[in-house]
Design a protein around this nucleic acid. Structure first.
Lengths: 219, 219
DNA sequence: TTACCAATCTTGACAGCGGTAAGTTAGGGG
DNA sequence: CCCCTAACTTACCGCTGTCAAGATTGGTAA
């Protein structure tokens, strides 16, 4: 094998050098190309130019690899959310901007977003990747921090910040998830503008929720 | 084979008679037992007592089988939602009841719910199962119908019913999805009541959204 | 009744997947 | 310079979805 010229052409070194990061970043590309189905360890390894067993030197599992990808996704999302409100000061505008940015991130990276919120249903599995939990919490922290600053600036009423954050998170996550899975058209059977009306619907529902959370609950 | 007494004991007939329905209903059980991972056609077939290739006489694909299961799930959900408000007349109570029922359904059938909202990301795949689309639309119809009656009774303001429905659907779906995937604890780091506070958070956010949608948007 | 047909189910095979074990390569510290 | 250890390859295993070919039956027509 050491004399195989073809292999020599493709890869100069036996040791890759940075396989772990290469796998994660290539996985991000592969994920959006092939979708969450069809995502194969062997395919990924071939793309990076290593054998199908090489990833096991850096990841215990396929799930561990996917968890690392999801962590990268949450970091991307966090940065995306914070960038969206960087040069905005008006509380309501910050709120809408971040909400729209959240949904936008999901639309632009549907397979990644789906992976990030994949079930990992077993309680055992949930505790397997603490970094994943942290990365998710950091993304939620961006949202929560924005709401916190809204409260401190007197825009929203005090109290129950955690509940507010959860409600807003659930709302934008629900919007994103429904749009990604194609239920948006199902809901709005208005044979109209399409994307334009979807943006309007998102803005409307975001503002509706904000308005309701701003003021004390009636019932 | 026709003389094998063991097989004779287990199954009396060569032809199952109602294999299609048996597969779907057994799949519903198997799904909650094993989770969406670990769900295997061969396992399912063995449980029903047929060979591993028998399902292909009734379903083109594993995805087709799963689609049928998802259809059954949506029918279950629709019935669940309608039952929840059957003997209630107060608009706000209907709203909260149905919202809580929606979330409750997801919590009680997490794997099924996840399957129902699984990506089927490819646009081609999305159009493959029209009954699935219809069943999903029917579930949304229960929600939308409830909102419609709220409007007709003068409780909510007129207009943009589709947008309202989508916003409410997104909200309850987001709540359900986050709870199922274990993000609820991540958001509420309040080391308190747990389930009790989650129910309170759900109710609060539902009422918040309702309040915001009831009244004209300020911004 | 009998013969046959089409649907249903079984058996056996295939490629591709995730994962493991044993051997190979090579960079880096003694 | 050697060798040790991490990184990587090769070969293999069991399992999966899927397909093709044959066996089995209920029902239909003669």
């Amino acid at each position: 094998m050491k004399n195989c010229p073809v292999v020599r052409l493709i890869k100069q070194t036996y040791h890759h050098g940075d396989l772990r990061n290469a796998l994660v970043s290539e996985a991000l590309k592969l994920l959006e190309q092939e979708g969450a189905e069809g995502f194969t360890l062997r395919d990924l390894a071939a793309r990076v130019g290593v054998s199908h067993a090489a990833p096991y030197a850096h990841f215990e599992d396929k799930n561990a690899l996917l968890a690392a990808v999801a962590v990268a996704g949450f970091q991307k999302l966090t940065a995306y959310l914070e960038t969206a409100i960087k040069d905005k000061s008006d509380p309501a505008e910050q709120y809408v901007r971040m909400g729209e940015a959240y949904v936008c991130f999901g639309i632009e990276n549907p397979a990644l977003y789906t992976l990030m919120f994949a079930s990992e249903e077993l309680p055992e599995q949930r505790d397997r990747f603490p970094e994943l939990k942290e990365a998710g919490a950091a993304a939620f922290g961006a949202l929560s921090g924005m709401l916190d600053s809204m409260q401190q600036s007197g825009f929203m009423r005090q109290g129950e910040l955690d509940g507010f954050g959860f409600a807003v998170w659930a709302h934008v996550h629900g919007l994103t998830s429904l749009i990604i899975t194609g239920r948006a058209e199902c809901a709005g059977d208005c044979a109209g503008a399409g994307i334009g009306s979807a943006e309007e619907a998102i803005r409307m529902s975001l503002l509706g929720l904000l308005h309701g959370l701003k003021n004390p609950t009636t019932a």
